[in-house]
Design a binder for these strands. Structure first.
Length: 464
DNA sequence: GCATGATCATGC
DNA sequence: GCATGATCATGC
């Protein structure tokens, strides 16, 4: 392959990359024209690492060695290859987060945003996205996106959030609390754990060892970037923050909270009169729909919440302050959950426990106060809204419920899972269409589908 | 009023 | 048609 681009020019790197769109490495590199046994061998490999190496070596002909500078050093461009999924026709999502480089806690603590390893390494990203397909060798994966993503050219609304995220991460690092970092701390830019082996630790500011972590764009934000590129304006979800608001010297979360302020203390009927036109107050989604309207969003999705993977939950408090309901999560599959691992498990293990990912996410609670027991017809007032991440100690409690659940299912006792009295934070209960909506256990019992729930008494303390 | 089991309404 | 978030029902 001839070199047909200028390694010192970001635009040239992008233009050259775009030749891959809707093609594959095999067709674009053209193996048949120039026989190359090494290339043939590597094109027939599997796995994402192989794809990335192939693009580096045989497409761009670069051989990056130094992790602290961008791959195209002179152009200041970092090359990233990443899988996407097609959910249904014309609907795409990122398959995973985009990892942006390991954090050296002690070094990073001394830096500013502009001199941080996040910024200096990832200020310009050349992103090549291919359609994920397990059964296909890397040479035959179809490329859908080749795009130069420059930080300074992202919308101000995005940059505001990313910069705020970086500040939150660096604050913990500087305080010697890198071991307390969690992906739920931040919105688009995360500090994700990097090692599959839980015993690996790194030094940080102070003496406490911390898990190695890397900067990453969360998968929700990657999905947003993918959709902007492939689906254009037509599919754009509504933003809660208008461009003019993004310019204000206030964090994203504070700006959201501010939108609710004028309506705190108002009854649901009064709020409906302000923003609820056209909403059906009989639906289970009503309190959530009202909350979205208060944020200025008419539809069912809030773009920033999707991109930041924030779970919005509505809570109704009875007169005594106890939430009317426990809080449910998606149902688990008995056969899947026994294959999953929680951070800290020894050995290679399987997929990260879905429940762990859920309790590490950021939540947005919209809390209504009932006049009595929250039965039908009871008066409800908007009490407050709050962003929340589950504290570390409570996640350890939730982990105990998860571990007992897995242990019971493995032991053939899937009919006896942790109840609400056994744990301060979480329990297990049915979550199905009805009692005939079952799922098969590893020992071939067919039991009603279940999920993890946060205890209402725990939530009472959280929202107090 | 709590623990537990069961089910609903909607969007995708 | 099912996953998801939310809610209802019953027995003690």
């Amino acid at each position: 392959m001839e070199l047909k681009y200028d390694q010192t020019s970001p635009q040239s790197i992008e233009t050259f990359g775009k030749r891959l769109i809707d093609g594959t490495l095999r067709t674009v590199i053209g193996v048949k024209k120039i026989p190359n046994p090494e290339l043939e061998r590597r094109i027939s490999a599997h796995g994402r690492g192989s794809f990335g190496e192939l693009v580096e070596t045989f497409y761009y002909d670069i051989h990056p060695g130094n992790d602290s500078v961008p791959d195209f050093t002179e152009a200041g461009v970092e090359l990233k290859t990443t899988p996407i999924k097609q959910i249904r026709s014309a609907r795409y999502s990122a398959k995973e987060r985009l990892v942006l480089g390991l954090i050296n806690y002690r070094e990073e603590a001394k830096r500013s945003f502009q001199t941080s390893s996040f910024f200096t390494k990832n200020e310009r990203l050349m992103i090549i996205s291919y359609l994920h397909d397990k059964g296909v060798v890397v040479g035959d994966l179809i490329v859908k996106i080749a795009k130069l993503v420059e930080y300074e050219k992202l919308p101000l609304e995005d940059r505001k959030i990313i910069h705020g995220d970086w500040e939150k991460i660096i604050e913990k690092i500087r305080a010697g609390k890198a071991h307390e970092l969690s992906e739920g701390d931040t919105l688009y830019l995360g500090a994700c754990t990097k090692s599959s082996d839980s015993s690996v630790m790194r030094t940080q500011v102070g003496d406490i060892p911390a898990k190695p972590r890397a900067y990453s764009f969360k998968s929700g934000y990657m999905t947003e970037l993918v959709r902007r590129e492939l689906e254009g304006e037509a599919s754009e979800d509504e933003r809660a923050l208008k461009p003019s608001e993004a310019g204000q010297p206030m964090s994203f979360e504070d700006l959201i909270i501010k939108k609710f302020q004028p309506l705190i203390g108002k009854t649901v009927e009064e709020i409906h009169a302000f923003v609820g036109k056209g909403l059906n107050d009989m639906t289970k989604d009503y309190h959530a729909a009202l909350a979205r309207r208060m944020m200025g969003v008419k539809g069912a999705r809030v773009m920033e919440f999707d991109a930041a993977e924030i779970s919005m939950k509505t809570i109704q408090l009875r007169k005594d302050g106890m939430p009317k309901e426990h809080m449910s999560f998606p149902a688990f599959k008995y056969k899947e959950i026994v294959q999953q691992v929680w951070d800290g498990d020894e050995g290679p293990g399987g997929a990260r426990a879905a429940f762990q990912e859920q309790v590490e996410k950021r939540f947005f609670f919209v809390i209504y106060q009932c006049g009595g027991d929250c039965k039908r017809g009871d008066q409800r007032r908007l009490k407050k809204v709050m962003f929340w991440s589950m504290p570390f100690d409570d996640r350890r409690e939730a982990e105990k419920t998860w571990r007992k659940t897995v242990r019971q299912i493995k032991a053939g006792r899937a009919d006896d899972l942790p109840g609400v009295k056994e744990n301060r934070v979480a329990h297990v209960r049915p979550h199905a269409r009805d009692s005939s909506d079952t799922d098969e256990t590893p020992d071939k019992q067919h039991l009603v589908k279940k999920c993890f729930w946060l205890n209402q008494a725990y939530l009472k303390e959280v929202v107090k």
